[in-house]
Simulated scan of single mutants.
Amino acid sequence: MENTTVVGIHKLELYIPDSYLTLNSLAEHHDIAPEKYILGIGQSKMAVPSPDEDVITLAANAAQSVLDSLTSQEAQSISTLIFATESSVDQSKSGAAYLMGLIDIQSNCRAFEIKQACYAGTAGLQMACDLAKTRPEESILLVASDIARYKQNSPGECTQGAGAIAMLISANPDIVEIDPERGFYSTDIMDFWRPNYFKHALVDGELSKDAYLNIMNKSYLNYIHKGGKSLAEFDWLCFHQPFTKMANKAYRHLKESFVDEMKDKTEASYAITQTYGREIGNTYTASLYIGLLSLLDNAEQDVSGQKIGFFSYGSGAVGEFFSGTINQNYRLGISTKHNKLRLSERHEINYDTYIDYMYQTRDVGQLEHIKSQSKFRFIGITDHKRVYQRCPMLKRKAA
């Protein structure tokens, strides 16, 4: 008998650092025209984590916001915690295990980390959907958290960013029902990678852009082969955005490759998904879902019942095309006023502070006097053990 359980995203929360650097400031210090960044890659700001923030603290803030929004019954239904990142802090212990010691989640829960570049968030989503479909009485907390960090003065520096997305995946979701059809394509290429002995990523930018577009087409064709919807049926398109201009390139590539299916599509079908990413920068595993949240938060009209086509890409490389339908209760699962307030209340830092935050190595004990406005802090390493601190809970301000 066919399993007809509807599964998808029930809650969706964002967390970003308090600080940002403008791309104007970066361009000035790189001695290039700001338009190369503002128009060329579509970025205006990059979120910059404080030295007492890392992917664990970013993830903990986003995850705790989801947990704070749940009823006790919903919280008790969480059977699995999945942590997706390509900025892992340990080669053995998962980020999910660290989260178990920080956030208010029950201990009767499996916890683990997954990795495949920026695709890992989608790998976690689809695994979570399969779990929820098989066991509809259970829900899964999925957290995607990353800090995009490149070598100073390298071409990739202008795409840096930081942030985390947390999602509760369940049966009968409030936000987005994820369709069962999925199209994939994987291959072995060296377009972006970070060896264990490097603190920053290495990238072949042109190869990566070409791979993204080619794998998008092949993933979509595989999705159609498996019974998926035509591009013509989607009200919205949501692309992975290593920089926001990449969504423009993806849209144009689909326009050229699938002329009949895309003939009625305009840039309005994806442009709103770029709003948050332009202000945050690259967040790797969280990027696609920040695009989704940007759409849900900023659409002027009610988008319930409308269909979204998603493309997820992870260098190395894996791509997946999938789809979903926005639920009529979607506003119950997101925190629109808080998200907009969070973005507007961040503070700008100067270039010297940015260099200090992103590139300065600190010894044990040097973090005690650095305090971000976070619920969770990384306070140093003792005996090769990372130490975190939970701060007094900060209440959200009313918008």
Rank of each mutant, 00 (worst) to 15 (best):
M1I: 07
N3D: 13
N3Q: 13
T5A: 15
I9Q: 14
I9E: 12
L23S: 12
S25R: 07
L26K: 10
A27S: 15
I32C: 14
P34T: 05
Y37K: 08
G40Q: 07
G40I: 11
G42P: 08
S44F: 11
M46F: 10
M46K: 10
S50V: 00
E53K: 03
D54C: 02
I56K: 05
A62W: 09
V66L: 08
T80Q: 08
L81R: 06
T85E: 10
D90R: 00
S94F: 03
Y98K: 07
Q106D: 14
Q106P: 10
R110D: 05
I114F: 12
I114E: 04
A120L: 08
T122W: 11
A123H: 09
G124V: 02
Q126F: 03
M127A: 06
A132W: 11
R135T: 14
P136D: 13
E138P: 05
L142P: 04
I147N: 05
Q152G: 10
N153V: 09
P155A: 07
G156R: 11
I165Q: 05
I165W: 06
M167C: 07
P173Q: 12
I175N: 06
D179K: 12
P180H: 03
F184R: 14
I189N: 11
N196Q: 10
F198T: 10
A201S: 04
L202K: 14
L202V: 08
E206P: 03
L207G: 10
S208E: 01
S208N: 14
A211E: 02
Y212I: 00
N214E: 02
Y220A: 00
L221I: 00
L221Y: 01
H225L: 03
S230A: 15
M246R: 11
A247S: 15
R252F: 02
D264N: 12
Y270L: 09
Q274C: 10
Y276L: 01
Y284I: 10
Y284F: 15
T285P: 13
Y289S: 13
G291E: 05
L292R: 08
L296Q: 04
S315K: 10
A317I: 04
V318Q: 14
G319I: 00
S323P: 04
T325A: 09
T336Y: 03
H338F: 01
R342P: 02
L343E: 01
S344V: 01
S344P: 00
S344W: 00
E345S: 00
Y354G: 07
M358E: 14
M358A: 15
Y359N: 13
T361E: 15
R362G: 13
V364R: 14
G365L: 07
S374P: 06
K375V: 04
R377V: 03
I379C: 09
I379R: 13
T382W: 09
D383L: 07
R386Q: 09
C391D: 06
M393V: 09
